[in-house]
Every structure is written in C-alpha cells, then in structure tokens.
Design a protein around this nucleic acid. Sequence first.
DNA 1: ACGTTATAGTTCAATGATTGAACCTACTGC
DNA 2: GCAGTAGGTTCAATCATTGAACTATAACGT
Lengths: 168, 168
Amino acid sequence: MKKVSFAEMRCSLARSLEIIGDWWSPLIIRDIYLGLVRFDDIALNLGISRNLLTLRLRHLVEGGVIKRTAYQKRPVRFDYQLTEAGEELVPILLALTAWGDHWAQPEEGQPIRFLHKPCGCKLMPKITCSACGKTVAASDVTALPGPGGAARAGTMVLAKRLAQAARA
Amino acid sequence: MKKVSFAEMRCSLARSLEIIGDWWSPLIIRDIYLGLVRFDDIALNLGISRNLLTLRLRHLVEGGVIKRTAYQKRPVRFDYQLTEAGEELVPILLALTAWGDHWAQPEEGQPIRFLHKPCGCKLMPKITCSACGKTVAASDVTALPGPGGAARAGTMVLAKRLAQAARA
DNA sequence: ACGTTATAGTTCAATGATTGAACCTACTGC
DNA sequence: GCAGTAGGTTCAATCATTGAACTATAACGT
C-alpha cells in the first residue's frame, strides 16, 4: 500500500487516512454509495487497475468501511455495501466534493448534483458545531494537548508546541 | 506523484483529491493550520522524506491551498500559510478527525483536543445542509446527473446509471 | 578568522506501489 | 459445446517513495 504506515501515529486524522487516505479509496466509497456496488462496474467507472481495486476493496473491508456480501449463489457473486462507519463518511466526502466545486471546478460544470431530500434543495454542506450549531471556521477552533499526545511520529513536534502554547 | 491523474475527471471529488488526495497532504495541511509552518518542523513532526515534502508543498501551493512567503531576508527563509481555500478545508479535516476518533480511536486517547471558541465546548463537527440546517445523513441525499456529466473516466458508468434512475 | 548552528532545501540509489494487459474459474443461456 | 458474464489473479514494466547524505546562505560565539 505504501512504505510508511500511519497506523501507529497517535493521531485520529492519520488513523482515518490509514483507512481511506489513498488515491482511490474516496472515489471507491463514493461509487459504492451511489449504487456502483460491483467489481466490474467500479473498475470500469474509475479506470482503476483491477488488481489494485482488489487490494483497495479488501483494505476498506478490513477497515470496517464497506462489507462484501454474496448477492447470489450459483455462481457465487459478491457486491459491496457501506457499513455504518462508511455511511458516516459520506457527508464528509460530500463536503469535500462541495469544496472541489468551489475551488477546483471543471469548466463543463458539475457532473453530479446532490439533492437534500428533507428540504428538496441543492445540497450545500456546511460543517457546524453540534453544541452551538454555528458554522465552524478554521479560526474558531483552538487545539489543546489531549491525553494521548506524546513523542511519537505524527504529533511529536506538535504535542510539544501545543503544551507550550497551553502554558503561555 | 502518481501514475494516473484525476485532473481530467469530470468529478469535483476527484478534483479535490487531485489537490489534497495523497497520503501526506492532509497531515501537512493540519500541521500548517496548527502552527507548524516551517519546513524542518513539518519534516520532523511527520517523519516524511524531505524531498517528498518539497514536492507536496509545491503541489499544494500550485493547488492554491497554501502559500509560501519569506518571513525574513538575510538569509531568506520561507514559511507556509493556509490560503482562503486552505482554511475552508480545515473544517473538513476536523470532521475526518472526528470520524477517526469515533471509528478508529487509538487506545491511548486522542492526542489533540479541539475547542470551539464561540461556545467553549469540545468540538463535535457535524455536516449540515445550509438550506434547512439539518444534519446530513447519507440516506438523505439523492444524486442526479449534472450538466457536466459525460462519458469520461471517473463518472462514465455512473452518469449513465444516474440518467437511467432519473428517468425511472 | 574559525568553527558551530540554523533553515530550507537538493541529489541519489534502493525499495516498494501502480499500471495495463492477459489469464483463470465457475456458471448460465442458447 | 461455445460465447458470455462476473469477480477476480498473475506478471513484467514503470513510476513514486524512502532514507541518508549533501548544499547554500548567513548569523553567532570566541
């Protein structure tokens, strides 16, 4: 998959990336979410190498994001579905898609429009704080050292800096 | 950077990933956001190869996510800061971090806690619809073919399926 | 004047991941 | 009994990533 693993990092972002952080995984998850649940469909839609798709699907299954189930016997055929963890990833991918619409839009316009069924509007995802309900901006957030922050790769320098800043 | 480029795909998610979709970029962006703005600090904190860090920083600058500025002359020294596009990416990374906290938590506990300053609470980011304000779940969203959806890699099979579904 | 330290990189060989194409296996439908 | 479908494997060639050593510029201490 890669040479360096993020799994050992004491960092939740790194651990998320360990599961879905490679080039193809987010697109695979999106495809499955949108109903492209079969091997050949995904391979054709994305143009990904079939052996790599095998590896990625297996990794996502191990990561608990998707599950592989037989949709028929004789001959046995499998498809892929999102798990609960995978479904909770979807809004994040939608937010990233919206970011791409805004900052890296293709000239031809968006290829897919997303509708929010409860209100019937074009979906414009915002990230909000579940406590106060306000939109979260980068400048509204402060980072503090947490219980697991220590001198390991991933947050080595960072943990020290945050501790310094917290004292000051 | 990789063998296949996502830049040509008519897909906003793929275009986002083209900019920030490789292994290290999200962590680099987080580090810069948290105040680790200098080359050596980032290299040490993440344990990334220095030549690769050079490539990634350059790519992120070209993608408009960060900017490189001289913070002193004699000797000329540079640091990195988020652009507006980069800052809008931060809440998405925080949401991904929260996902990791929930679904892939390290045993030691979180290394970093995030506080939402306006309300003073531990930040629990949610993705909401900006039209109705409700939390967005995967099942609340429908995908429809958009103006730019056509037979190119990335949405080939998908565009066809969505068009079929829309007719039905 | 001299060596040490700091910062932001570059260069290079070795190793590992990704690609694309061809192949495999079990079964169906004609 | 032969083409077609589905979900993969296998393999060589190519490309990306790693890790370590090196460079350049300048301040600082003695």
